[in-house]
């Protein structure tokens, strides 16, 4: 089992949720702010300048190893616009998982 964490643009969330439906059983979205090299806003408030992070969406998807490649492919195809700062995908191993209602997880 793997945890796939995708940081994507909020404008792509809708399409992603639809596109991922066939390969996942659910996902969790977080509203986050992020920055990267050359990616932040140069803001000014009442004459004082400061840097501010950009709003992004963090998607958590837990999946069987067999589906991971498909999920990565779908996310990359759907969330890509070709510009810089399209987001990132991270894959981590998941040791165990349970449903709160039943106390165990069907494989």
């Amino acid at each position: 089992m793997k945890l796939i964490q995708c940081i994507v643009h909020p404008a792509k969330l809708d399409q992603l949720v639809t596109a991922l439906q066939s390969v996942t059983s659910g996902m969790t979205a977080h509203e986050i702010r992020s920055c990267g090299p050359g990616i932040s806003w140069h803001a000014v408030y009442r004459g004082v300048e400061y840097e501010t992070l950009l709003p992004r969406v963090l998607l958590d998807i837990v999946s069987d190893d067999t589906w991971v490649d498909d999920i990565i492919r779908i996310v990359v195809e759907t969330a890509r616009t070709g510009e810089a700062n399209n987001g990132t995908i991270h894959i981590m191993p998941v040791e165990e998982s349970y449903h709160v209602r039943t106390g165990f997880m069907d494989q």
């Binding site: 803001a43 000014v44 408030y45 009442r46 004082v48 300048e49 400061y50």
Partner: peptide, 17 residues
């Protein structure tokens, strides 16, 4: 001044609305 309004260099910081 409010805490953190001025940095160590004495420059004002933004506390946005």
């Amino acid at each position: 001044a409010r805490l953190g309004k001025y940095g160590p260099d004495g420059k004002p910081r933004a506390f946005p609305a």
